[in-house]
Amino acid sequence: NKFNKELGWATWEIFNLPNLNGVQVKAFIDSLRDDPSQSANLLAEAKKLNDAQA
């Protein structure tokens, strides 16, 4: 379904953000699993944090 596809894509993108540490990645992935409907918002937050830590 739509959420599974978005969840998978967001998970892959978060895993590939180079400036996040393992704890941050795990926290974002756990949040995605808790509420897949928020995948776009969580991915945006992860990208912002990644950019801030560059």
Rank of each mutant, 00 (worst) to 15 (best):
K5P: 13
E6S: 09
L49A: 03
S39N: 05
V25Y: 03
L32C: 04
G8E: 15
D34L: 14
P36H: 02
F15L: 15
A54F: 07
A27G: 08
Q38E: 11
S37C: 11
E6P: 04
E45F: 06
K5C: 15
Q24G: 00
I29P: 00
E6A: 07
S31W: 10
L7K: 02
Q38R: 13
N1I: 10
G22N: 15
L43Y: 05
G22Q: 11
A46D: 00
I14Q: 03
N4P: 14
N16I: 08
E13W: 13
L43Q: 02
K26E: 06
N16M: 09
S39A: 14
A54M: 08
A27C: 14
L42T: 07
A52T: 08
E45H: 07
A40L: 11
A44S: 11
R33C: 15
N19K: 02
N4S: 09
L17F: 06
Q24V: 02
L7E: 07
F28Q: 00
I29G: 01
P36D: 02
N50T: 01
A44K: 09
K2Y: 11
D34P: 00
A46K: 00
N21E: 05
S37E: 07
G8Y: 15
A27P: 00
K26Q: 10
W9R: 13
D51E: 12
N1A: 05
L32I: 11
L42G: 01
S37R: 07
S39P: 02
A10F: 15
D51H: 07
D51T: 08
E45N: 04
N41L: 10
L42I: 15
N41F: 13
N16D: 05
L17C: 06
L17A: 01
W12N: 14
E13C: 14
Q53T: 04
S31H: 07
E45R: 07
A54C: 12
A54R: 09
R33M: 15
L17I: 01
D51P: 00
A27V: 07
W12C: 15
N50L: 02
L43N: 02
N21F: 07
L7V: 10
N19F: 14
L49G: 01
N19H: 12
P36L: 04
S39T: 12
N16W: 07
K48E: 07
N1H: 11
K47H: 11
T11G: 09
E13F: 14
F15P: 02
G8S: 15
N21P: 01
K5F: 07
K47W: 05
L42Y: 04
K5T: 14
N4Q: 13
K5N: 12
P36I: 06
V25N: 01
E13K: 09
A40I: 10
D34M: 12
A44L: 09
D30N: 08
G22D: 12
E13M: 09
A10L: 07
S37M: 06
F3P: 11
N19E: 03
N1F: 03
G8T: 10
W9Q: 14
N4Y: 11
L32V: 04
G8F: 15
L32S: 00
R33K: 09
A44E: 14
P18E: 06
P18M: 07
F28R: 00
D35Q: 08
E45M: 11
K2A: 13
V23G: 09
A52H: 09
A54Q: 11
K48H: 06
K47N: 04
A10S: 03
G22F: 13
S31A: 14
R33I: 14
N50Y: 02
N41M: 11
N19P: 00
T11K: 09
R33A: 08
E6N: 09
N16G: 07
F3T: 13
K5G: 13
N19I: 01
V25S: 03
T11M: 15
N41C: 12
Q53N: 05
K5V: 11
F15G: 07
F3A: 15
A46M: 05
